[in-house]
Amino acid sequence: MTPLQIYLPIGVVLLVAVGLAMLMLGLSNVLGPRRPSLVKQTPFECGSEPVGSAHERFGVKFYVVALLFIVFDIEAIFLYPWAVLLLPDEKTGYAGLGWPGFLSMGIFVFTLVAGLVYVWKKGVLDWQD
């Protein structure tokens, strides 16, 4: 069996997927109803009337707070499996992470707390202007 024969089924599946996607888009474009109206062309704003321009600039604070939220959300995601694996389990015979696991998570949490203190001292979390 040559190396190209191994990839032939993958290529066929990709071609079928792309072809099917193009076929469905083409059919919906040809067969779909066209009844444009002013209501259908207005931007959807979660049920509210759109206010202002869509090209309005947001302050950098919104993006920084979003990034900080992601960082601390990831911390919470890493804390759960660590807490589950820290202690030994007599049922399965798992020895647990022990002190090395505790120390490594302590370093991880200390780094994140140091980052939180840093952004707090810099005033990034203050919303008053």
Score class of each variant (00 low, 15 high):
Asp126Ala: 09
Phe102His: 06
Asp89Gly: 00
Val109Ser: 03
Lys61Glu: 10
Glu75Ser: 09
Pro81Ile: 02
Asp129Arg: 11
Pro36Leu: 00
Tyr118Ser: 05
Phe108Arg: 01
Gly19Thr: 01
Gly26Phe: 05
Gly106His: 03
Gly11Ser: 02
Val60Pro: 02
Val12Trp: 03
Asp126Lys: 15
Met105Glu: 11
Gln5Phe: 11
Phe72Thr: 04
Pro3Asp: 11
Gly101Arg: 05
Ala17Trp: 08
Lys61Pro: 01
Asp126Cys: 05
Gln5Glu: 12
Val124Leu: 11
Leu25His: 06
Leu79Thr: 00
Leu31Ala: 11
Leu67Ala: 15
Asp73Phe: 15
Leu97Tyr: 06
Lys61Trp: 13
Val18His: 00
Trp120Arg: 06
Gly59Asn: 14
Pro9Cys: 08
Leu14His: 00
Phe110Trp: 08
Phe72Ile: 04
Phe108Trp: 12
Val117Tyr: 06
Phe78Met: 12
Pro50Ile: 03
Leu68Ser: 10
Leu23Ala: 10
Gly19Tyr: 03
Thr92Ile: 04
Ala83Glu: 05
Gly47Asn: 12
Gln5Ala: 12
Leu68Gly: 13
Gly19Val: 01
Val16Phe: 09
Ile6Asn: 10
Val109Asp: 01
Leu112Cys: 07
Val60Gly: 06
Ser53Met: 13
Phe110Gln: 00
Val18Met: 08
Gly115Ala: 13
Lys122Gly: 00
Val60Phe: 13
Thr92Gln: 02
Pro81Gly: 03
Arg57Thr: 14
Met1Leu: 10
Glu49Cys: 07
Ser53Cys: 08
Val71Cys: 06
Val64Gly: 01
Phe78Leu: 14
Tyr118Lys: 07
Val117Leu: 09
Ala21Thr: 06
Pro50Leu: 14
Ile74Met: 12
Val117Thr: 03
Leu25Arg: 11
Arg34Cys: 04
Gln128Asp: 12
Phe58Leu: 15
Val16Pro: 01
Leu14Ala: 10
Pro81Arg: 02
Ile77Gly: 03
Gly11Leu: 10
Val119Lys: 07
Ser37Leu: 02
Val119Thr: 15
Leu97Met: 15
Leu14Cys: 07
Ala17Asp: 02
Gln128Ile: 09
Leu85Glu: 09
Leu103Asp: 01
Leu25Gln: 08
Arg35Lys: 11
Val30Phe: 07
Glu45Phe: 12
Leu38Ile: 11
Gly96Phe: 06
Ala21Asp: 01
Ala95Ile: 08
Met22Val: 10
Leu8Asn: 02
Gly115Met: 13
Tyr63Trp: 15
Asp129Ile: 06
Glu45His: 09
Ile74Cys: 04
Leu8Lys: 07
Met1Thr: 11
Val65Cys: 10
Glu49Val: 15
Arg34Ile: 08
Ala54Glu: 15
Leu31Lys: 11
Val18Lys: 03
Leu20Pro: 00
Val64Cys: 05
Ala17Arg: 01
Glu49Tyr: 12
Val119Asp: 05
Tyr118Gln: 08
Pro33Phe: 04
Tyr63Ala: 15
Leu79Glu: 05
Pro36Gln: 01
Arg35Tyr: 05
Leu67Glu: 12
Ser28Phe: 09
Glu75Tyr: 13
